[in-house]
Structure formats: structure tokens, C-alpha cells
Simulated assay, not measured.
Amino acid sequence: MAFSLGPRAASAGYRLAVFDRIGSTNTEALVRARTGETGPIWLVTAEQTAGRGRRQRSWISPRGNLASSVLEVIDTSPAVAATLSFAAGLALEAALQAVSLEARMRSPVSEKVTFHLKWPNDVLAGGRKLAGILLEAEVVARDRLAVVVGIGTNVVAAPEGMPYPAVALRDLGIDIGAEDLFRALTEAWAEFRAIWDMGRGFGEIRRLWLDRAAGVGQQVSVQSGQSMVSGLFDTIDKNGCLIVATSDGTRVAVSAGDVYFGTAASVGAT
């Protein structure tokens, strides 16, 4: 099966660029934006060799896994554009729900899997990292903002030797192809991108995201650089910052960092 857009994505004007092998779909999208590409366009590859996650961490995607990015050039501020990552998380969770349902219908012995969104940009299954999202933005011609949302999902294989537990859909008994997941993702992206509506709909995105969030109300620590904030995961605010309620009654807004839940919070590992 070849990579293709879902009908809703196609009707919304999205185009598609497919690669057999590429270093990074995010890098390719930014290069195109610098040379005049305005999108909206999806880029997807069968194999990614030089992908990256947050803080320039490596994200290699072997054949069978899904590595994709969507590029849109929009008129908004970087702060507002950053909230689009929450819409991306919702889109990926919805796509995963759709393909896992299809897999269970084909194989009734498969168990239902619950996916959770981990602030700021991961999708978990059973507490293990299944997917990551990386949003990058850059000002291009006419002072418009090129926004690239990279989405990588472990479909057939999860990386080993990482500082966190990881899992693939195949490990969970969900036997689907990257092409099926990509098509579902483009459909869900068109839906949640429309709800987001240049940031005007972030209130609804925030509500939906919190309904699916991992760790709300639980002990959490967030490490940002050399500083660590610990307390209870209270909520996310109107800007997408994580709000930590500390033991002294302070509510601290965290804009970026690595999140550790529960007992792992005290040792700095998920």
C-alpha cells in the first residue's frame, strides 16, 4: 500500500510529498518553506535516517515505522503557533484509536489499548512512549511563520537503550501498516486543525487534550535545564504551559521541560 491522504485532508487543500528514504521530514519541510513553499503539505517517508526530537535528540525511524511532517505557512505569532502541538497530539491519538479499532475488528482477540497524551509532546501506551511530536517554526518571506509539525510513531519497532521505556504498536498487538496510520492521521489533523482555528479554538483543544492527558492530579516533576519543579500536575493554562501545584501552595507555570511522573519524579526517569 502506498502513502495517501485521507479524503477530508485532500478536500481541505493539503498536498503530499512521499519519500522512500530521507534524513528528516521536518528538515525537508523547513528547506521548502525557505524557498517559497507555503503549504499546506504533508511530507512522509518510508525510512528516516536523521530525524530529531526535542532538544536535538535523535529520532531514527526504520522502515515500517511512521515519520511524517505537515507544513503550514500562517499569519500568527510563535506563541500562538506553539499551541498547535496540542492539536497534533489530539489528531494522533484519534488516528491511533481509529487504526486500533480496525485492528481489533480484524482480530477480535486483540485487547483494547488506551492512549494518553503526555505534556508537552508525547503519546503513551501503557506508560511507555509510543510517539513523539516536534513543532518547529521559522519566519519566512513577508514575515509569515512557517510552522512544521513532525510526528513520529513506533509502528513495528521501538528504539532500545533510551532513557525512557518505549513501545511499538506491534508490541501491543495492533497489526497495522504505517500507510494506514498516516491516512488516518491526515484525516484527524484536518479535523483538529480546523478546531484550533489559528489559535482561536485553543480553549476547546485544551479541554479535549486534558481529557486525554496522562498524570493530571498526580505527582509530577518537570526538569528544565538545571531547575526542577515538583508537585501535582494541576492543568495546562491558556498558553499551553503546564501548571504544577507545589507543596507550599504555589502554582508554577512551566513552558518547557522533561516531565517525570509518580515515583519516577524523584529519580529523574520515566
Rank of each mutant, 00 (worst) to 15 (best):
V80D: 03
P78V: 03
V70P: 07
F86V: 05
A67D: 06
E72L: 11
P78Y: 02
A82L: 11
T76R: 10
S68F: 07
P62Y: 12
T76N: 13
N65I: 07
L66W: 00
L84T: 08
S61K: 14
S77K: 09
A81K: 06
E72M: 09
W59M: 09
F86L: 01
R63Q: 06
G64E: 01
A87Q: 01
Q56A: 15
L66N: 00
L84N: 04
A79V: 10
S85H: 05
S58F: 13
I74K: 08
S77E: 09
D75T: 15
A88Y: 05
V80I: 01
S58Q: 15
T76E: 10
D75G: 14
P62M: 05
V73A: 10
A87W: 02
A88D: 03
T83A: 03
G64P: 02
V73F: 11
L71H: 05
R63T: 06
E72I: 03
W59R: 12
A87N: 00
T83V: 07
I60S: 12
P78C: 04
S61A: 13
I60P: 07
F86Y: 04
S68H: 12
A81H: 07
N65S: 03
A79N: 14
L66D: 02
L84I: 09
P62W: 12
P62V: 08
S85K: 01
T76F: 11
R63P: 02
S68E: 11
V80K: 00
V70T: 05
L71Q: 01
I60Q: 11
S85I: 03
R63H: 04
Q56R: 15
A67T: 10
A81E: 02
S85W: 04
L71W: 03
D75K: 11
A81S: 04
S61Q: 15
A79M: 15
S68D: 14
L66A: 03
S69P: 02
V73W: 06
G64I: 01
A82R: 09
S58M: 10
R63D: 07
P62T: 12
P78A: 03
N65W: 06
N65R: 07
N65K: 03
F86I: 00
V73Q: 11
A82E: 12
L71V: 07
W59N: 07
L84C: 06
V80W: 01
A79G: 11
R57H: 15
P78E: 01
I74S: 15
V80S: 00
Q56P: 14
N65T: 05
V73L: 09
W59Q: 13
S58V: 11
W59D: 12
L84D: 08
E72Y: 08
W59T: 08
N65M: 06
W59P: 13
A67I: 10
Q56T: 15
S68T: 09
L66Y: 00
R57D: 14
D75Y: 13
S61L: 14
S77V: 07
L66E: 00
A88H: 02
A88I: 01
V70F: 03
V73N: 07
A79W: 09
A87Y: 00
P78Q: 02
L84G: 08
I60W: 12
S69C: 03
N65C: 05
R63W: 05
V80A: 01
A88K: 05
D75P: 15
S77G: 06
P78L: 00
E72C: 05
A88Q: 04
